[in-house]
Design a protein around this nucleic acid. Structure first.
Length: 625
RNA sequence: GCCCCCGUAGCCUAGCCCGGUUAAGGCGUCAGCCUUGUAAGCUGAAGAUCCCGGGUUCGAAUCCCGGCGGGGGCUCCA
């Protein structure tokens, strides 16, 4: 039971609305009490009449000192995340009230189960505000001492120390940092450290992913396994091609490995013991298999069987995992932000030693920035922030490397330091996207792994002919592809809130140019223009439906189409076209050639896929809404 | 996993608290009219296992229990 105890001059409250079905009956009016102690009470699991009594005894003793004799018990769920069931809570609250009255205290209680409005005035003295926590276990103190040692050890290892590292390498404790010019970094820090959020709202991208016919829940599958509509499949596929091309350009060897692995395989069994509950399990004849949660297994098993010389290092292997599976707890799944089946580009680099690993990591850092900035059109320091996590030992010996990362970022970064190594890596960094609910989620990430080379028996032969285990870098240059879509949608929503038109990058827009004929009389002219544009590998479609031009323009706008061209009488007679430019927010008179040139310039060096929907809107089914 | 909230045509919503004729409206779809100059033209039609299962009741979209799905919070995040 958690209780906020406030000594007040007065409190006023008014029941507004029932929040639960079995709420108590009461009169909806304004109540006022003066000169009293208010107890905001969260009844937690395990609490009972006994706890209630003990708490009231404590409070009564305190009130005696204050010479107060009026008490209000106010059910208040927000103090705890481990609440008792409503029926139990009500019973406990009633017990408190009864016991208070028995102690000759003038005791009141506000109705349970209501959304109430209240205002109060707290007395100014030092004892006026107090928190009380009472648990059901009786021999509190003895128990605590004997049990804690195990847990304490783990906690000491996991205890995090938070800092901000500035581009010049300065490291300041997070509470001393001036965040005034670093709003999104502050959000990241607050999210990572305090995890305090109060918003009760669906994330904006969930609505958008459906409205734009990108992706949707698939009730016929397991939660977190999505269906992708044609437009979404196109976007996703383009992103996959783009990231893959970038990683190959960086020098990785693309491979493909199985999605399921044998629990009994010696290299895997030990590793998995640490994470028993989070995989999908597949039974096949006498075997039990788990679905991979990254490309690590397949690639490490492959590397185990590979003849590697120091000359080959750093050796880069890449796979676009479609899919990786993590059976995240159901309460964790949120739209495209966190899924149970997701597509993750995963690039490992086997490195001879720490120096090589650090050099390589810096190269990959650049790759990651490029993908987010040029590919997804996200802005460093605004849409995403750098977080670096490392052990104290690693930091002490490799300060220059950590500084180099922050310097590359060019913005202050959040740092988390552990006294001891608990995970298999000594350092990891991520780019965290901050969404409209101020939540952070990792996109690009890289880690320096010091354990798995040995665990998987991966060896290379060094200059002296001796066998050695490599260090392994684990990098997802973009993060999960689905999460990239989430980030772009959240960003678009943010743009809209700021009065700018929401858009996807041009190279990812399913329709890049839409032709709207004024009436069917101009359809053939529209066809001509469309096929001319199409020749240049630009996705174009034609709204040939029997609707008014205004309506068709409106729909093109709600579909976020970057360029819309209305074709009528004038366009047959003239060379210039009125191009409705979404980004510019105006109609630009352009020659067809100029428009094509502009689009080709903007989308240069990005992959292209033709439209995967019927070119004519009249031929197109509606997948959502 | 735990706590809270939600689930009504393809979509969005009303009705539910306080049980009672054919479950209401908008968007979309279909048919027809209109042939349009840059963000919603007009008329009509079709379209609902009221998430699923059980219970209470003469009677359940409505009340109760269980499940499934979604959202939020907590915890966790290789």
């Amino acid at each position: 039971m958690r209780v906020l105890q406030l000594h007040t001059d007065w409190i006023e409250y008014e029941p507004i609305k029932k929040e639960i079905k079995n709420a108590e009956e009461c009169e909806k009016k304004r109540y006022r009490l003066e000169d009293l102690v208010v107890l905001f009470v969260s009844v937690e699991k395990g609490d009972n009449e006994e706890t209630a009594k003990r708490l009231v005894d404590e409070v009564a003793a305190f009130m005696k000192k204050l010479k107060a004799n009026r008490l209000l018990i106010y059910p208040y769920a927000h103090l705890s995340s481990n609440l008792a069931k409503p029926a139990t809570a009500l019973r406990v609250l009633k017990a408190m009230e009864k016991h208070g009255k028995e102690k000759k205290i003038e005791t009141y209680r506000t109705p349970f189960g209501w959304c109430k409005q209240f205002s109060l005035a707290i007395k100014g003295h030092p004892l006026a505000e107090q928190l009380r926590v009472i648990t059901a276990e009786k021999p509190e103190k003895e128990k605590r001492e004997e049990k804690v040692s195990e847990a304490l050890k783990a906690e000491e290892k996991l205890r995090s120390y938070w800092y901000i590292i500035e581009p010049n390498g300065n490291m300041v404790p997070v509470e001393e940092f001036d965040f005034s010019k670093h709003e999104s970094l502050e959000k990241l820090a607050r999210y990572e450290i305090a995890k305090s959020r109060a918003v009760q709202q669906m994330p904006p991208h969930v609505k958008l992913m459906r409205k734009l016919e990108i992706a949707d829940y698939e009730p016929g599958s397991d939660p977190g396994n999505f269906r992708w509509y044609p437009k979404g499949a196109l976007i996703k596929s383009l992103l996959e091609q783009y990231v893959t091309a970038k990683v190959i350009e960086y020098g990785a060897m693309e491979v493909e490995t199985p999605v399921m692995y044998d629990f009994q395989h010696p290299s895997l069994a030990k590793y998995l013991d640490r994470f028993p509950a989070r995989q999908y399990v597949v039974k096949s004849e006498d075997k039990e298999l788990f679905l991979r949660f990254s490309a690590c297994f397949g690639q490490f098993l492959m590397a185990h069987d590979t003849q590697i010389s120091y000359r080959h290092l750093p050796m880069k292997i890449y796979e676009l995992t479609r899919y990786s599976f993590r059976r995240e707890k159901s309460g964790e799944l949120v739209g495209l932000r966190r899924l149970r089946a997701f597509t993750m580009p995963d690039c490992h680099a086997l490195c001879a030693d720490l120096q090589q690993a650090k050099d390589e990591a810096l190269r990959r850092f650049d790759l990651c920035v490029e993908i987010l900035e040029e590919g997804l059109e996200l802005v460093k320091g605004e849409d995403f922030e750098l977080a670096i996590r490392f052990t104290k030992d690693f930091y002490d010996e490799n300060k220059d490397f950590v500084k180099a990362l922050v310097k590359k970022m060019g913005k202050p970064a959040l740092a988390e330091m552990w006294k001891q190594r608990f995970f298999y890596f000594v350092l990891k960094w991520e780019f965290n996207f901050i969404d409209n609910l101020d939540k952070a989620s990792a996109l690009s990430t890289d880690q320096i792994d010091v354990e798995n080379g040995e665990r998987y028996g991966i060896v290379y032969v060094d200059e002296k002919g001796e066998k050695r285990h490599p260090l392994i870098l684990h990098c997802s240059p973009s993060g999960a592809i689905e999460r990239c879509v989430y980030a772009m949608l959240e960003k678009a929503y943010r743009q809209q809130k700021r009065g700018k038109p929401p858009m996807l990058p041009l190279w990812l827009s399913p329709t890049q140019v839409r032709i709207v004929p004024m009436s069917e009389n101009y359809l053939s002219h529209a066809e001509k223009i469309a096929s001319e544009i199409e020749k240049h590998r630009i996705r174009v479609d034609i709204d040939d439906r029997a609707l008014t031009m205004q309506k068709k323009v409106r729909e093109a706008e709600t579909e976020w189409i970057p360029y819309v061209i209305v074709v009528g009488k004038k366009e047959i007679e003239s060379e210039t076209l009125p191009v409705r430019d979404r980004k510019a927010g105006k109609i630009r008179k352009m020659k067809l050639k100029e428009l094509v040139r502009e689009i080709k310039d903007i989308t240069a060096e990005k992959p292209f896929k033709p439209l995967t929907l019927p070119k004519h809107l009249s031929q197109r089914p509606q997948f959502y809404g």
